[in-house]
Design a protein around this nucleic acid. Structure first.
Lengths: 226, 226
DNA sequence: CGTTCAAATTGCTGTGCCGCAATCCACAAA
DNA sequence: TTTGTGGATTGCGGCACAGCAATTTGAACG
């Protein structure tokens, strides 16, 4: 199935936005849209098909499962984000939909060919991959030797920043895109500890909670490590 | 100072190896060699010059320092590895030499121009950056919710793999490239804990230590998580 | 409006790692 | 040889987080 790029919700933010109209329509012929329901799996670690995709709407998580069966969230993917393997013959991590999502999927070889044909596309992906790399290292730094308090507050600030329009501005009111359990998996903590930290922050007047997912930053300066 | 690519030790492994002889010599005019002594700093987080480099010999660490002044190692860089910022106006992390090292340094804009001119170069960098991204996520998974025992054994196996010729084969005898303290910083542990785990592994017969850096894998199956 | 069930919260107890401090060890210089 | 020095090891006490269990919350449904 061919895609209607003209109505694509991430038309001007995705990697393919660096292409001209004609080039983009040409690329679209190699891809197809796919819808995922919440919790549905896009890729499984070890699966042998090289494949990749741009996220159009919804949200994804990239995870790995350790020997004990515990899941670790390695990255969150937001609309216009890119996931998958163009070169490697197998998937290295699991990719699962956090909520109902829509994607633009390409086969690995087809996308590799597109990269050959359109130098701008590989540059755009390089930039995006470098951003992902730094995001991963930020998370690594955050979960490294920080206390639970610092991790949760760091995650709150990071999510708040992602929720606002500009990446250097905090949204004072936002919804957590993930559950307590998922937040815990991402920070290397337990559900209970995350919950306790949020309770502490609220008691200290730094935040206010609105329902299970809603967060209001009352006084960000009270959060550790700011 | 111009470079003699013909004598470059990573001539056929670095990103620029995808270029033809003529193109490579052309690129070399934009770069210069630089030697770093052990412990010397190449980039400091926040510094405002966009710059990047290929490591020719030695080893580097990419680190971040948190609010408490504790250092966290985010990545190790081996010869033919690439570091720095081509696009962002400032450095995001510190880059320090682990031992005496030699680099091929480019200014950010000059390298960005080279990427524009040589599509193959941006593809090679894309591939390399994706590898770095997965390495970062592997480390994230390792340090996530694993016990100190699992982290140290995971690091031993990973380093052993890196020390052997093939990436899927374990070297039974190798030297740790970093000190206890650096290993601890990388795993989010303390020097003492790393030391205790190594002592435990030796007492259980899994490894034998030879001096401060030497490690012999006697029975890898005894290491947790294998 | 009540019912239902998963998710979140809270309390309690155990423990694994940290942090400090005292050695110990290997190596180098005198 | 002695002395010095930096890293590594070991012991010990404290605390932050994990793990379990009971309870509460709140969102979706009939």
């Amino acid at each position: 199935m061919s895609l209607a790029c003209s109505t694509c919700p991430v038309r001007d933010r995705a990697a393919c936005s660096v292409l001209g109209e004609a080039e983009r329509e040409e690329l679209a012929k190699a891809g197809r849209t796919r819808k995922l329901a919440k919790g549905e799996t896009l890729f499984t670690a070890g699966m042998s098909a090289a494949s990749c995709a741009t996220l159009l709407s919804g949200a994804l998580k990239i995870t790995s499962t350790d020997a004990d069966g515990r899941e670790r969230i390695l990255s969150l993917v937001h609309p216009s984000g890119f996931v998958g393997e163009m070169f490697a013959p197998y998937m290295r991590h699991d990719v699962v939909a956090l909520g109902d999502s829509e994607l633009c999927v390409f086969s690995g070889p087809a996308f590799a060919e597109a990269i050959d044909r359109y130098p701008k596309l590989s540059q755009a992906l390089l930039r995006r991959t470098q951003e992902d790399l730094f995001a991963s290292r930020e998370l690594l730094a955050l979960t490294g030797n920080a206390s639970a308090e610092q991790r949760v507050s760091g995650a709150l600030l990071s999510i708040s920043r992602a929720a606002s329009d500009s990446p250097c501005h905090l949204a004072s009111r936002f919804d957590l895109p993930i559950s307590r359990g998922e937040l815990a998996d991402m920070l290397g903590l337990t559900i209970e500890t995350v919950s306790r930290m949020l309770t502490r922050f609220e008691r200290e007047g730094a935040i206010r909670r609105d329902g299970k997912r809603g967060i209001e930053l009352v006084d960000p300066a009270l959060l550790p490590l700011s």
